[in-house]
Design a protein around this nucleic acid. Structure first.
Ligand SMILES: NC(=O)c1ccc[n+]([C@@H]2O[C@H](COP(=O)([O-])OP(=O)(O)OC[C@H]3O[C@@H](n4cnc5c(N)ncnc54)[C@H](O)[C@@H]3O)[C@@H](O)[C@H]2O)c1
Ligand SMILES: NC(=O)c1ccc[n+]([C@@H]2O[C@H](COP(=O)([O-])OP(=O)(O)OC[C@H]3O[C@@H](n4cnc5c(N)ncnc54)[C@H](O)[C@@H]3O)[C@@H](O)[C@H]2O)c1
Lengths: 278, 278
DNA sequence: GTATCTTTGTGCACGCGTTCACAAGGGCAT
DNA sequence: ATGCCCTTGTGAACGCGTGCACAAAGATAC
């Protein structure tokens, strides 16, 4: 889920599946906690529990890194911490710039979890002249004009975008032109980048909408459990009279009509048999 | 990627694949933008471009919702906006509570993108007595004691956790006990929840580590391009003397020895043939 | 030194997600 | 009314990710 468009295979970077890479930080966190408690070794079962994954998955993940375990014993915590850190590139320091020091950008700048893993914020950039010169998290906010200079002087390869969506693509272009090749984007916009540049996005709104989808489904199931558990027709929306049963939400506006007078059964959900009508 | 452990199938909620659900908000955003520009119809190709996905994928995604397009023409923007909104449950209002009004929690509370999609922040909760009573984003911060009351009075089913990691599980338990069944977790911790409760996590640190992994790989490839592009042995880490070639990063500490004196070729990367030695 | 026990590492099968490629379907020009 | 052209909707193939189940391997006890 790096960039969006299929401009690069994005899978199997040097033999390590992308899904595994995404879990390595999880293992690393659990291992670090064990390390701080001076636990010498840990079994795949224990570690998997701490990381919230299946133990078979964990073992397979580690098998991509090499054979770092000892059969009958488990994994050496310190050794594994080092191996994963190395694999993730955390034995280096990564200078990072944050662009857009508003609500979110300032929170990020103040976030301690950054530095703890070798990510060092070396530049805070904002277009607002009011902000330039201000101190945030011990750093002076710089004006956008300084973007290229900061990136080049510090050899920054990771940039964080926390500007409004409208400015994101432009900021992205400037970051890339200056030499940044990995971008973490908080703005709700799709970024176009050249090959070789990775983009990961964090979108709060999308996360909430996914939760809402499942939440609605749960409510629909509960509501449908009372009237008639007949066939698959669940009438998922339109809380009929059971509005008090589900959690207290309120409806909003009406619905637009089908553009043409086409074969539209009605405004309710398509009563498809959940497998595809064919 | 709901909760972690496989306590629930989590896939194919009412026939719509999870991957599709995760993309619907993306389509919705693109469609909303078109709608604001009064564009009446859009082809799968155009819309896919705006959403940053493959057009075949988009058409298949929409096919799970029903046949809402017109062959030879495309999709009616307004109609599709409504259908997706309905599918995602955005025709309802979703009251939300945020727990932990620190740097991040305050930024979230101030975020306008919340309300725009029917998510209404109805409660800000913090354990700090200093914060209780303060105004943040037009709401009064309430003390943790009020958590249950706010959730129940407002029928909240979606909760956001922005507390330190140490408090996250406890907060989660209280939210769930009070009736919340969807949680968005910003704290870097694995939450255990009962069946029927969805958890999604947003972890900045993990995102950065994934970027670092790929960044290191890119640097390794560039570095290896000079010495000897022989076989697959890339010597990915340990920037040899080409440290100036790659972006300006600095190494950190040394490595721990293998626990036993086992069959360890050396400290460098396992020189495995990238497919598994068998 | 041998037996037993524990835990890893992985072969294998299965299901989800992605993509290709094309037939079906509908609009539009003539 | 007819035919052409465009775009959808989807069957089918493929690849990745997951999880089971077990043999291999090493530790430990005797
Ligand atoms: N606040 C949140 O909790 C939150 C949550 C999810 C997503 N987001 C997204 O993150 C982004 C930032 O949100 P925010 O609440 O911090 O907004 P904000 O308005 O508080 O801050 C945006 C900052 O970006 C600066 N900026 C604007 N254009 C710029 C440019 N071209 N170059 C550099 N800086 C520029 C502004 O001066 C401002 O300081 C938005 O895209 C928002 O949608 C925010
Ligand atoms: N700030 C960031 O940019 C950022 C980024 C990624 C992740 N996070 C994570 O988000 C969480 C919050 O980060 P932050 O920077 O806002 O921290 P913070 O310390 O600024 O805020 C945490 C808030 O939670 C409150 N709190 C503590 N225990 C509580 C409890 N039991 N119930 C209710 N409230 C409680 C504290 O009083 C404080 O106000 C942390 O887990 C952090 O790791 C933060």
């Amino acid at each position: 889920m790096a960039t969006g468009r299929p401009h690069r295979p994005a899978t199997r970077s040097r033999g390590i599946p992308e899904a595994t890479v995404a879990r390595l930080p999880l293992y690393l966190r659990a291992l670090t906690a064990l390390s701080e408690r001076s636990v010498p070794t840990v079994s795949s079962e224990e570690l998997a529990g701490a990381a919230g994954v299946n133990s078979a998955k964990l073992r397979k993940d580690f098998s991509y890194l090499g054979s770092y375990g000892t059969r009958g014993v488990g994994y050496d915590v310190e050794y594994l911490v080092y191996q994963i850190s190395r694999e993730l590139g955390l034995t280096q320091d990564w200078p990072v710039v944050i662009v857009g020091i508003g609500n979110l950008g300032a929170a990020l700048a103040n976030y301690g979890g950054f530095a703890s893993r070798g990510f060092r914020v070396v530049g805070l950039i904002d277009a607002d002249p009011e902000l330039a010169g201000r101190q945030v998290a011990g750093l002076t906010v710089l004006h956008s004009d300084e973007l290229e200079r900061v990136v080049e002087e510090n050899g920054v390869s990771i940039g964080v975008i926390a500007t409004p969506a409208g400015a994101a693509q432009q900021v992205c272009d400037r970051l890339v032109a200056a030499g940044v090749s990995s971008i973490l984007n908080f703005a709700p916009s799709v970024l176009a980048v050249p090959d070789g540049v990775d983009v990961r996005k964090v979108d709060l709104s999308i996360e909430l909408q996914i939760l809402a989808f499942h939440e609605q489904r749960k409510a629909g199931e509960n509501a449908a459990a009372l009237p008639e558990p007949e066939n698959g027709e669940v009438t998922p929306v339109e809380p009929p009279a059971t509005a008090a049963v589900t959690r207290g939400r309120t409806d909003r506006e009406g619905q637009p009509a089908r553009p043409d007078g086409g074969p539209d059964s009605d405004g309710g959900t398509d009563s498809a048999p959940a497998v595809m009508p064919a």
